[in-house]
Design a protein around this nucleic acid. Structure first.
Lengths: 189, 189, 189, 189
DNA sequence: AATGAATGAGACTTCATTCAT
DNA sequence: CATGAATGAAGTCTCATTCAT
């Protein structure tokens, strides 16, 4: 990735996570990134494009990390455990992005609703497929796979966000254990 | 509640849920409510106050419905079932509010962060208390009660929102069953 | 006409005639008119709308003055004389508008080209009709009426503009005589 | 003339005639000319200089064509006929320049007002001198020579522009005949 | 010499808020 | 009390110009 674009991305996430995308001005992003205001518009068509690119970049990044981690694992139960672990780690490492993402993904997407749907789907579908596989193999309960995937997504996302906002520390290991216990002892037959 | 204030609330939720609070102008709210722009400022100090009042009103409303429904029930397991049911029903009935709330509650609270924390806590604490009670009574697993509460909250909220946005219908009964199955068979010993 | 709109019109013509519409900022117009910047946008959708409204208003004004002056005259030659006189007087009285109009009417109309054509036509057609009438009555030479109308329009407009820019005074009477002599002794049989 | 400068001139006229000089960016001109943006600044001090150079180049070109064509002619009436013919031909051949010129020459000259005056004068004075000569020789009416020159200029310019904008074809011969008839039978004793 | 990435002044426009009616 | 015309701070975006390569 281009180094200047990277600086802009980093600056944007920092600001967006602190103040929300709507309350952050392009001016602020430029200053934080250490570039001129006009430079932002060389790399992104407009503010909306910058936001959308960030969402896409972040989700794709997370999704690919999850895919990679799960690739050579066969057991769907083990796979789900890895999903939880990787996502928690990702959120922990990129807390700003986590905050930013949660807001934007449920926001009024107006212009790029379709893209957001697609992006969001890409992420959820990974989990959904694992659950479907697990159900077929008789290792997981026969619940609605989509609902199972969305629920897990929501649990992880909201819990992480809650901890970032209400607690000083984020004990990934402890939270992971709890979430797995909570989600597994129900879903495993 | 004053009738004019109610009209404003209704109009605001309608607009906020469609376009987000930042993309909604006071003008639009006034027009939708059928009152003059200046009138909004008789009932609310400013836009921020209107947003905050809405959040508070909505959450308090939901919390009081939950409290009321749970009041005379002893069994914590039954209580949790009721929580899920009541919240799903509430979101279903006030879909606009559900969308609005999810965005705002995780948004950049800037000015009234403390109030939001308090409000959000009020809601989560109900669930947390039920879980604590259940653990003491030996009916629920000994997980971290706060995490259990936040997880449930997230599951319900995100799942509801997902269904509103990706599916035509919202089969409350079916979703309730699935969520209960998912959450219960794990948390119940 | 609304008094504030009139103030804006006057201010806009003053500025536009001095610096051209593109080099005049909405800020300047607001200041000159003694109103707030936002007020401009209560009366006009945007800058383009303001420019277009001015053109339309001015041309309609001039056309209606011409029509009125010519109404009860029968002789087409006398009519043409009146046209020249009225237009010169109009340009003389509203020099700023004359400058502004000449630039805009031949400018890159982009968005409202069709409207401009219509407006410009409305004005030229009055002269064209008089010429056609004169030809039918055998009092004017059988030249192309449209060309005759456009030529006269151009002569008047460019001559007026030239005098405003290169001479201190604008001797309407003298110029009128010269133009009539020039245009008449050719067109009259 | 340098070949790269010529490419820039051609590109600039094309764009200016289409969108007006203010609505054309240096970027666009560079792209159309097939050179880098920075190169424009090797050949012209800035955008204003480019515009001014174009005006000067075009008018000088036209004026020299007129001068050349008129050089060995004695009769002032014949001279005027040639002026009309040459200018119409010139406009017809360089329609884009005709549009561009008409706008700019009457535009808000701000920075180079004096130069424009000089340039414009150069052109008008040729006609003015012919008229003066004709008056002295007793072949033309004793009207104000400057007004006669400006009027003819205006007639030709505006008529040409009108035909470019409102009609598909530009029948030079027909228009020439009409203009000569119109202008001559009045100005010739 | 030629290029085009980078810059930032400045333009247009929106909208929360005020206040005279 | 209610209204909506008026305001101007502030935001997004454009584009002439510079300068390192």
């Amino acid at each position: 990735m281009n180094s200047k674009q990277e600086k802009i991305f980093t600056a944007a996430i920092e600001k967006f996570s602190q103040k929300g995308s709507t309350n952050t001005t392009m001016q602020e992003i430029a200053e934080t990134a250490g570039v001129g205001k006009g430079t932002l518009y060389r790399y992104f068509k407009n503010k909306e494009d910058l936001i959308f690119s960030l969402i896409k970049y972040g989700i794709d990044e997370m999704a690919s990390k999850v895919k990679e981690a799960v690739e050579n694992v066969q057991d769907p139960v083990k796979k789900l455990e890895i999903v939880i672990e990787v996502q928690l780690e990702f959120y922990n490492q990129y807390r700003g992005f986590c905050k930013f993402l949660t807001r934007e993904i449920w926001g009024p997407q107006s212009k790029f609703e379709e893209h957001i749907k697609e992006i969001r789907t890409n992420n959820t579908v990974i989990i959904e497929d694992i659950i479907s596989q697990g159900i077929e193999e008789g290792k997981l309960k026969g619940i609605n796979a989509e609902l199972g995937a969305v629920s897990l997504s929501g649990m992880i996302n909201i819990t992480a966000l809650h901890w970032f906002m209400f607690h000083e520390s984020f004990p990934v290991e402890k939270i992971k254990e709890n979430l797995i216990s909570l989600y597994f002892d129900g879903i495993i037959i």
